[in-house]
Design a protein around this nucleic acid. Sequence first.
DNA 1: CGTATCATTGAGCTTAGTCAAAAAGTGTGG
DNA 2: CCACACTTTTTGACTAAGCTCAATGATACG
Lengths: 238, 238
Amino acid sequence: MKTRMTATSIDGPGHYRHLLSSRPHRLKSLDQLAVLMPFHRGQEICSQSEPAEHWYCVVSGAARRYVLRADGRRQIVGLLLPGDFFGFTTGDVYDVTAEAIGEGTVVAAYPRRRVELLADSDPVIAREIRQIAFDVLSRMQSQLLIVGRITALEKVGSFILEMAARMSQGRGDSVALPVSRYDIADYLAVSVETVSRSLTDLKHRGVIQLSGTRAVKIVDRDALEDGERDAGHMRSAA
Amino acid sequence: MKTRMTATSIDGPGHYRHLLSSRPHRLKSLDQLAVLMPFHRGQEICSQSEPAEHWYCVVSGAARRYVLRADGRRQIVGLLLPGDFFGFTTGDVYDVTAEAIGEGTVVAAYPRRRVELLADSDPVIAREIRQIAFDVLSRMQSQLLIVGRITALEKVGSFILEMAARMSQGRGDSVALPVSRYDIADYLAVSVETVSRSLTDLKHRGVIQLSGTRAVKIVDRDALEDGERDAGHMRSAA
DNA sequence: CGTATCATTGAGCTTAGTCAAAAAGTGTGG
DNA sequence: CCACACTTTTTGACTAAGCTCAATGATACG
């Protein structure tokens, strides 16, 4: 069993502070409550069935939320990029495990009780948290829509589009995938081999270009979006 | 295009009031703000891309949230049973369409602006809404975990278990499925034929019994849960 | 009681999973 | 800087699961 890094394992709460303050994100008003924690590659941030004492926000790097099946299969129910919050539960324990993907992933941990108390006295903060919850909801629904697609090619195509949108804030046709093929496979609920084959296929068709294994350039966005279009496809104008 | 029933189409806001007050659910404190609306089978409750002016709660019957793909395929991203809330968005328009499944499905509509104003002045209500959002999150994650399963048999098995848990509050091994095979198919992202074949299969194996097409009796719960068990499987003790 | 919808079953075909192995990166210590 | 070990990625051959098309049976509703 992996050891879990605790808040006390960092040598001073202000060490990564600049990372937080320099980055625009929701809950800015709660930054002073946050404890910033760096994690090693593959290290658990919070574990399924353990007391849910914090809400988290990725500051830099990336993380994955997942469950392990009895057959050993891993199912990823969320990829978390900088600015993404996680750790919200219905009960008082975490419902899935979250772990850092890259070395040195930094996460802000907000003590749940204290934040909720603050929210009780400050409607603005309460609204912020509500909005964050809706964002999480929206992210999860996107994944559901991707995983629910029919062919593996469509799943991988949608995945690239989602990553492109989330990583570069919608602009730019180049993505540096923050995850391995294995992660993509477990996120899309297909096998690694199928992910690899789909990418190769998209490359051969001239839909994408690959520089190395992680850098993807979107050449023909329309082709990716085909089999992606749903009736009434439009970004919600906030 | 289907016509959408508006709030004015009911002949008095108090007509279905007893349905709401007799049913335990969250947001009891907001019942007086709710407008109760009955819907016909297949009638739209709210539409993708339209202004999100209400939050909803199913009072009786059932509803589905879905998107339509360019190829005509329908993807269901949520089945809503009595007590379930929906209509939360990140932007100011609904991100998917919701429609009633059964004839006479009754839904409570809460005017979003007014509820948020109320939440601003009442921390208890704000907390309620937060909790509701987390519930929605949990429901969606459950679906993601089911859709992400490998075989159709596992998907259908998990679906039966989920419905049994949600409909009878965990008690009882009999479920009256509130939806058609087509709905199940679009919820699980498999074809109707596969749903039918899987149910027949489970019946022949003695895992379930079917009385008619909608009534399912769980005979061998363990068998359904196999390929269902994930490491650390336990209900969060609230 | 007829008609439309829903459900089941069958046959053939396509896709993706599995098993196996090679190739390409990555990182480490000598 | 290079050699070695390990991980990740790709490719191939085979198998099996599920989709499509098609037809028949069952239900529900007017």
